[in-house]
Every structure is written in structure tokens, then in C-alpha cells.
């Protein structure tokens, strides 16, 4: 009964309750947002195990920062920012000890892991482009993902990735160009 009552709450109410330390409400927010946070983490770090750690850590950071969430942005937007910062921290830590992030990449598109309900709406080029994104370097891919999939501004990207706005623009340019080349190669190979 308690669970049914919690699930019937609107997210805004859940956020308000979580801000005052209500663990049940925060747990419900975790259940609601876990897939989108994990998806962003996978796209940023390209490693499912690391993405799981990033997802967990991002929610823990969010819980600790809940009192500071003022509601100026949507809760999911705020959560995305925390996820990007967390992913960056994890990657930096990992790169200090291991410099071969490509090794842990799955060689095939993770279509089996895509939510079948929502993936069905975009059955065309999405898996190909997801796979092509993995061919980009981390620094370039992060900018493309945040700009073209999550609609972040150049200024937001620069701020969160600790780079200049000019660098963000250059990486976006390079990333889009590389993606076009990758997709063209696949298309030419298929013809």
C-alpha cells in the first residue's frame, strides 16, 4: 500500500519531499530516472560497468545535494549535470591508472540493452549512429552527445567539461565531420 501511495505522487512532490530528507521519495526518483541517467553515462564513458558506477555515484551526489536544489531547472536537467560531472571525475580517475578505454567497449551496438518500448519508436538510424559515436574520442564524443542529443549550449558544455567555448565549438565541428565520414563509409560499404 505504501509503495502504491508513493508511486502515485507527482515527481515535483517527490522532489520536494526528497529535499527534506525523505528517503522513500528519493528512492522513487531513482527508480524513475535511473534509465535516463544510465543512458547518458553509457554515452559518455562507453563502458557499461563504469556507467553503472557513474549512475550510482551520480544519485548519491544528488542525494547529498538535494537541499541545494532550488528548482530553477527541471530535476532531470539538474540530474544530467551531476551525471556529466560524475562521469568526468570517474574517467579522469580511470585514465590515471589505465589508458586503454577502448578495450572495454562492446564491439556490437547494445541493441539488446535498449529499452524495447522506446527504441521501437526510432528503429531507423539510431543504433548505427550510437555505434558511430563510439568511434569518436571521449573529448569529442562528449561534446557531440551533450550538444546534439541533450541540447546543451556551448557555454554549458564548456563549463561542465572545463574547456573553453571555442574548444567546445571546435570539438563539435570535428565530431560531426567524423560522424558523417563514418556513416558515409558504412553506407558506401553497404552499397
Amino acid at each position: 500500500m505504501e509503495r502504491e501511495r508513493v508511486e502515485s505522487q507527482q515527481p515535483r512532490d517527490l522532489v520536494d519531499r526528497a529535499r527534506t530528507g525523505d528517503r522513500d521519495a528519493f528512492g522513487e526518483l531513482v527508480r524513475i530516472h535511473q534509465h535516463e541517467v544510465f543512458t547518458l553515462a553509457v554515452r559518455l564513458v562507453r563502458d557499461r560497468d563504469l556507467a553503472s558506477d557513474v549512475t550510482q555515484d551520480a544519485f548519491v551526489r544528488a542525494w547529498r545535494a538535494m537541499p541545494q536544489f532550488r528548482g530553477d531547472a527541471k530535476f532531470s536537467t539538474w540530474l544530467h549535470r551531476i551525471t556529466v560531472n560524475t562521469a568526468w571525475t570517474h574517467r579522469t580517475k580511470r585514465n590515471r591508472v589505465r589508458l586503454d578505454p577502448l578495450e572495454s567497449l562492446p564491439s556490437e551496438p547494445e541493441s539488446a540493452a535498449i529499452d524495447p518500448v522506446r527504441a521501437g519508436e526510432s528503429a531507423s538510424a539510431a543504433p548505427s549512429i550510437e555505434h558511430a559515436l563510439k568511434g569518436l574520442s571521449t573529448s569529442v564524443r562528449s561534446v557531440v552527445v551533450l550538444k546534439d542529443i541533450y541540447d546543451w549550449s556551448h557555454a554549458e558544455i564548456a563549463d561542465h567539461l572545463d574547456i573553453s567555448v571555442t574548444a567546445a565549438k571546435v570539438r563539435l565541428h570535428r565530431g560531426r565531420k567524423e560522424l558523417r565520414q563514418i556513416l558515409r563509409g558504412w553506407k558506401d560499404g553497404a552499397e
Binding site: H35, W63, I149
Partner: peptide, 22 residues
């Protein structure tokens, strides 16, 4: 168009994530 379509694609998080977080 393909990048916009990706907005609709969600990866399913491992089932143990909520438990690990809590």
C-alpha cells in the same frame, strides 16, 4: 535526424541500481 532520434532511445539500467544507491 539520427542524433535527434537518439533522444528517444534509452538504455535499461542494471536492475540492482536502485538498491545500490539506497
Amino acid at each position: 535526424r539520427a542524433l535527434v532520434e537518439l533522444k528517444q532511445v534509452t538504455y535499461r539500467a542494471p536492475a540492482e541500481i536502485p538498491l545500490r544507491v539506497m
